[in-house]
Design a protein around this nucleic acid. Structure first.
Length: 286
DNA sequence: AACAGCACCTGTAGGC
DNA sequence: TGCCTACAGGTGCTGT
């Protein structure tokens, strides 16, 4: 489940691996991995010399010297590999061969990932929010919120901030003591400030550790990340909170699992009394 | 308009 | 052992 730090790690390696190379041939093994017409995609790819490899949110962007621009979204199980290992062989979706004889394979067990061609770089990924790597950017986004949606759901909304997924949303909320069900517009100035500081700090630390490897994510050279050793709540349901020892709870918010320490992350006070955590209203701890 | 829920997919884990 | 079910979650679409 690659989020911003995992995609950034992949982009840095991909840049070293393919920049300056020309695509000599391309093979589509699973048609629906390509958005739009595979024939046109193929026509535009052939002969393209890779000028730039970049990241925008969770999208990988590849620009040709001729202005051709396409994106790769790995969704949940997508990977880019130079050499497919045995387990990858049944999951090859798209393969590129370069003029120097090297290959790049898009492997995706669950077939959710997509490659897409854009008219130009500027037209790609419309509607994506800003990159959450600077405190001021995140703070500005949080201050503009006028919704009662749970803050967890807002952090996952790519039109508000681009690149945060389930792992880092849970970790940032834990780090700031904010309960994921807190309505976004109910955050006070102090909470906004703390969250705006925590999100870039946590993402940058994860980039420094080459991302989080839980199930599927591996970098191009098949290395794992190391950030999973530094998670406080994600994937730790039932285990003791590393701050206070209270068992971590698992809730379901907007259809996704959320990990929360009920002691460290309190719901905001309402009417002078503590608002109850609505575990009984459609949310089920496991 | 805002939000919830589901489809897309398949590998894996756990129960029986 | 083998079958069945639940679960994983990013995005985009549909329904309320």
């Amino acid at each position: 489940m690659p989020e911003l730090p995992e995609v950034e790690t992949i982009v840095r390696q991909l840049r070293r691996r393919i920049k300056g190379k020309t695509i000599a041939s391309m093979r589509v093994h699973w048609r629906r991995s390509i958005e739009g017409r595979p024939g046109e995609f193929r026509r535009r790819m052939l002969g393209m010399t890779v000028a730039t490899v970049c990241r925008r949110g969770k999208y990988i962007g590849i620009a040709g010297a001729d202005g051709t621009f396409f994106t790769i979204h790995l969704r949940m199980t997508g990977k880019l590999v130079g050499e497919p290992v045995a387990a990858d062989r049944g999951h090859l979706r798209v393969s590129f061969a370069f003029n120097d004889g090297t290959m790049l394979h898009f492997v995706d067990a669950r077939k959710f990932g997509r490659l897409r061609l854009w008219p130009c770089r500027g037209a790609a990924c419309p509607g994506l929010g800003p990159e959450p790597l600077r405190d001021a950017v995140v703070l500005s986004a949080l201050r503009g919120l006028r919704t009662r949606r749970p803050i967890k759901s807002v952090l996952l909304d790519q039109t508000i901030l681009a690149g945060i997924g389930n792992i880092y949303a849970d970790e940032a909320l834990f780090a700031t003591g904010i309960h994921p069900l807190t309505p976004a517009m109910a955050l006070n100035a102090g909470q906004q400030q703390r969250l705006a500081e925590a999100v870039p700090r946590i993402l940058k630390a994860a980039i420094g550790r080459r991302g989080t490897t839980l199930r599927n994510y591996r970098s191009i050279d098949d290395r794992s990340g190391e950030n999973q050793e530094h998670l406080f709540v994600y994937g730790r349901a039932g285990a003791p909170c590393l701050e206070c020892g209270t068992p971590i709870e698992k809730l379901r918010i907007a259809g996704r699992s959320s990990h929360v320490c009920p002691q460290c992350q309190k719901m905001p006070l309402a009417g002078g009394r503590r608002a109850h955590t609505p575990c009984a209203s459609g949310l089920r701890p496991r």
